[in-house]
Design a binder for these strands. Structure first.
Lengths: 340, 340
DNA sequence: GTGAAAGCGCTAACAT
DNA sequence: ATGTTAGCGCTTTCAC
């Protein structure tokens, strides 16, 4: 265990097997330009010598690696973890490894992360861009020539796996209205987010459909985190008249909001109705169980990985835009409300 | 955007700046063996040409990369995500990137993952070994000569960041006993896990201390997942006499158990008391809020990253064993129980 | 079916 | 302070 064993190279394997480097390489790569017999010989030698394939060398030669960069804003939001799980699961099948980066909502970190991945010669990037990302960033990656799959925003020339955010807003709002609410807040999230804007459009369109006036004071922005959700409820209390229902930008905000409401003695699902978006695992753990609009993070992760993989293999065609239809999941956080 | 731009290499940057390749390399690496003036010239050229450092080439040359392998069993367990967050946060500081792998509790996947990371020439590995891992595995990595930090088990020659599992078991059990319980189950987790065994030791030691007989039928094994926790509660119902309290192997099991209990009309924190281990974020979201013994996953992630980093830098010394003292976090899932 | 040889982009002696 | 040079281990024509 003391002496540094000098690393075994392909050449040594070849020598040991009594073939050339080329043959050894070909044999190990599984191509069938070698006889079965030779291949077995080579494999046996590799095993015996404890050969470890050097991907750095291969990457250099090939000018591309077998790693995929995945960049998400926040490891503590289960939405992203679910996405990550999907990506991971699918990429495994293609024998690709994930180079992971969490930006923690910082533009600067995101910039660094992307540079680093480019330096690593990742063969593709799945990017959940942080709030306020410039187009420059994406342009920079595209210029290098590696495929990019976007999850939360579209950009010309990139594949995009999104949900129909407007519909998400509509589903949530309509559910609330049908439960008898007409004073519905839209809580949390940032107007810089395309998704925020679209969900708001959905929200307003339904209000209009039911001839309910849009009340700007019921639209409250925040960052898209649980903590922000918790804090932003304060703004609701400042209103002369509390809403009877809240459509939250996403589930983590819903959870934060529910906690604050409860602290203030307002019981969610009883005194006030709540709908979130995403359907993260916590949504069915919290009490009352959260009614939410699923945005299928796991599924999107799988799809993102698949599209990226086909791009990496050079399968061309126009950039794809996949818009998944969100789905209302009714649980226990909304109650009937009769006219006061 | 059409023509493939041929990649800029260090040589081209050097030429453009009117210096040699070496000088360019040294200048960019931030060493101060070049004049400030030269460095600036080189940096300017690199920027202008859009140079992207090729880590594959550097890795090959250096025979080591700037990536660290992190292997965890389950991305869907927040315990691991918290650990990951800590590792990620700390590694960022050292400009290292995470090559992530989730084994999903499969030995075979773990094997593949480790091989892959070795091929990538990661400069170190943080390993949360899956249940049933053989020593061979770790031996294999050590033979390559890269440092390994273990999180859930110790192994000669490796650093280890664990918690005092026996104490965790004691803390939980004692809390329950002091609340008046004397029929306490130990639910979930697998006896193959060192941590399971140690927590059981703690559990039994406290029972003995209070002269309560150990009842084997109250010790129920399962895999360490939420779903398993949910299912294993069934076994409790089969007993002639239900326990009045449950010490769960970890928080996800507690959560699963609580869900099942509730479905059966037994209200946790009221009809039955529950204590978990880990203190994952969900513990304070679920209702009743879960009383648990914190195992400080985030902190352990940070420490693991730190130790690994110092090993990578070649800082020697004996393998460290850091045992963090778990801490009882009292919330709402345990109630006083008076003698019937 | 197999081998010889070139070269990917970088770093680190060593020389100047 | 800067340049010359020799590989790191692999894949891939192109011969045979």
């Amino acid at each position: 265990m003391k002496h540094k064993k000098t690393k075994i190279t392909l050449l040594e394997v070849a020598n040991h097997a009594g073939v050339s480097k080329t043959t050894a390489s070909v044999a190990l790569s599984g191509s069938d330009y070698v006889s079965e017999e030779t291949r077995n010989k080579v494999i046996a030698s590799a095993m015996e010598l404890g050969y470890v394939y050097n991907r750095a060398a291969a990457s250099l030669r090939l000018n591309s690696s077998s790693t995929v960069g995945l960049i998400i804003p926040d490891l503590n939001n289960s939405f992203y973890t679910a996405l990550l799980t999907g990506v991971n699961k699918e990429l495994n099948k293609f024998k690709k490894t994930i180079l992971l980066g969490s930006t923690f909502e910082s533009l600067e970190v995101q910039e660094r992360l992307i540079s680093s991945m480019l330096e690593h010669r990742v063969c593709g990037i799945i990017l959940f861009a942080v709030l306020g990302s410039s187009d420059e960033l994406i342009k920079k990656i595209k210029k290098i020539g590696i495929p990019v799959v976007l999850v939360n925003r579209s950009y010309p020339g990139c594949d995009y796996i999104g949900i129909d955010d407007m519909l998400a807003g509509q589903l949530a709002t309509e559910h609330l209205i049908k439960k008898g609410h007409n004073r519905i807040a839209y809580l949390g999230g940032d107007s810089y987010l395309t998704s925020w804007y679209k969900r708001r459009e959905g929200y307003e369109s339904i209000l209009k459909k039911f001839r309910i006036e849009v009340d700007e004071s019921l639209i409250i922005e925040s960052s898209p985190t649980q903590e922000a959700g918790y804090n932003s409820v304060e703004d609701l209390f400042k209103l002369e008249k509390m809403p009877t229902a809240i459509f939250c930008f996403n589930d983590v905000i819903s959870i934060g909001a529910m906690m604050k409401l409860e602290e203030k003695g307002i019981i969610p699902g009883q005194d006030i109705s709540i709908v979130g978006v995403d359907d993260i695992p916590e949504a069915s753990i919290i009490k009352p169980k959260l009614t939410t609009v699923s945005s299928f993070p796991f599924l999107r992760g799988i799809q993102a990985a698949n599209i990226l993989n086909s791009r990496i293999k050079g399968e061309g065609g126009e950039p794809q835009t996949i818009i998944i239809e969100p789905q209302l999941i009714v649980r226990d956080s909304c109650r009937w409300r009769y006219e006061k």
